[in-house]
């Protein structure tokens, strides 16, 4: 997928995750362990996505001999600039927040679908078998970060499901 399309997709995913995080963090039991770890993971996703958007020039900065930490900062700043150039779409059908969490917010599941499809399109069609995807996730810096964001998202959803499971058990 070309740059601008990827950035638009990443913006959409970020908006969905932000709405999901708002839904979760208005849950009444904010101090609960599973809710807290879900929120921590959702909050971490945003930085990972911004860094993924800022990757392509990072090779140049590495050549310039800048240290790893500065490289990360450069990627973050660059990613933020690139993403800011693209509009953030609204979230369709987003229900207003209610206190208390009864289901995993829909927006998070949508976010996962969009993130995975954006990843697959970034890898490129025709390279969608599992070994090829694994190779891309290990070698390509953008795909690696998208995979990390996907992992964090799945972990957050899993934490919420365990919380809801505990609630159902009583």
């Amino acid at each position: 997928m070309a740059g601008p399309a990827l950035y638009a997709e990443l913006n959409a995913v970020r908006a969905l995750v932000a709405h999901g995080l708002a839904d979760v963090s208005t849950a009444s039991e904010m101090g609960q362990f599973w809710i807290r770890s879900a929120c921590a993971r959702l909050a971490a996703i945003d930085a990972v996505l911004v860094e993924a958007a800022g990757v392509p020039l990072a090779g140049v900065t590495m050549l310039a001999g800048i240290s790893m930490l500065a490289g990360r900062r450069v990627r973050m700043a660059l990613g933020r600039r690139r993403l800011a150039r693209h509009p953030t779409p609204g979230v369709p059908g987003h229900t207003p927040r209610r206190p208390g969490l009864v289901i995993v917010p829909e927006t998070l599941l949508h976010a996962r679908v969009r993130l995975v499809s954006a990843t697959l399109r970034h890898v490129g069609s025709g390279r969608w078998s599992a070994p090829e995807l694994r190779r891309a996730a290990l070698a390509d810096p953008v795909t690696r970060r998208l995979a990390e964001a996907d992992l964090l998202l799945c972990q957050a959803v899993d934490c919420m499901e365990r919380y809801l499971d505990d609630l159902a058990k009583g």
Binding site: T119, A130, L133, R134, A137, D150, L151, D158
Partner: peptide
């Protein structure tokens, strides 16, 4: 193992989003 399970989940070869999330933890 996480990368392997995740790529197989992406390829819909072995869909299991919870398993690789927990392995990641």
């Amino acid at each position: 193992a996480v990368v392997d399970a995740q790529s197989r989940d992406w390829a819909a070869d072995r869909p299991d989003r919870v398993g690789f999330a927990r392995l990641g933890q």
